[in-house]
C-alpha cells in the first residue's frame, strides 16, 4: 500500500490543492442551490463541517471493525445520524435559516464529499489525521461556498451578509440569485481557478 499522507498534508490538501469544489468537483448540489446569500452559505458550511468532522472521527475510531462489503452502509448510517442532529439543532435555534435551507440540510446525507472523505481517509487513517482531513476539506468547501455566494449576493441583490454594499444606482441582477446565476458564477470561477493553476 502506498504511503498515506500525514495529518498536516491532509489538512493543507483539502483547502486548495484538493479543494472539494474547484478540484474534485464534488458536493455541487448545495453549491448551486444555496449560494444566493452569504448567510445561507455560511450556515451550510458550518453544518457540513460538523457532519464531516463527526463522521470522519467516528469512522476512523471504528475502522478496524469495518467489513469491506458493509462499509458503505456504516458510512451512510453514521452520516445520516449527524445530519439529523444538525437539522434538528438548526430547526430549534435558527428556525428561519432552517426554513430557508429547507431540504438541503437533510440532503447533506447524500453529499458525496462526506462519503468520499470517509472512504479515502477516515476508514484508513487514525483519528487525528481523519479530523484534520475533515477540517481541511471543510475549510476548502466553506471557501468555495463563500466565493460563489459572495459574487451572487453582491451582484444579485447589491448586498453582502444582508447589508447594502453596492451604490443605490446598481440595478440588481436578479438572474444571479436565480438558479442560472449559480451555474454561470460557478462556471466562471471554476474556469478562472483552472486558468490560474495552468499559468503556474
Amino acid at each position: 500500500m502506498a504511503e498515506q499522507p500525514t495529518a498536516l498534508e491532509r489538512f493543507v490538501q483539502g483547502i486548495l490543492p484538493e479543494n472539494p469544489v474547484y478540484r474534485q468537483l464534488i458536493g455541487l448540489c448545495p453549491i448551486l442551490a444555496i449560494t444566493n446569500s452569504m448567510q445561507a452559505a455560511v450556515t451550510m458550511a458550518v453544518a457540513v463541517t460538523f457532519v464531516l468532522v463527526c463522521a470522519n472521527a467516528v469512522i476512523s475510531l471504528i475502522r478496524p471493525l469495518l467489513k469491506p462489503h458493509l462499509r458503505i452502509v456504516i458510512f451512510t448510517l453514521t452520516i445520516a445520524t449527524f445530519v439529523t442532529i444538525a437539522d434538528r439543532v438548526l430547526a430549534a435555534y435558527l428556525y428561519q435559516m432552517s426554513k430557508t435551507l429547507g431540504p438541503y440540510i437533510p440532503l447533506i446525507i447524500v453529499n458525496c464529499l462526506i462519503i468520499c472523505r470517509c472512504e479515502v481517509c477516515a476508514s484508513k487513517q487514525p483519528v487525528f489525521t481523519a479530523v484534520s482531513d475533515a477540517v481541511g476539506q471543510s475549510i476548502g468547501y466553506g471557501l468555495a461556498l463563500a466565493s460563489i455566494a459572495c459574487v451572487r449576493e453582491v451582484l444579485g441583490t447589491g448586498m453582502f451578509f444582508g447589508m447594502r454594499v453596492m451604490p443605490a444606482a446598481w440595478p440588481d441582477w436578479s438572474v444571479m440569485v436565480l438558479p442560472p446565476g449559480g451555474f454561470i458564477v460557478f462556471g466562471l470561477l471554476l474556469g478562472t481557478a483552472n486558468w490560474i493553476s495552468n499559468r503556474r
Partner: peptide
C-alpha cells in the same frame, strides 16, 4: 452486520 446493528442502536 453486528457493527451496523450496534451502531444503529447507539445512534
Amino acid at each position: 452486520a453486528w457493527l451496523g446493528i450496534v451502531l444503529a442502536l447507539v445512534f
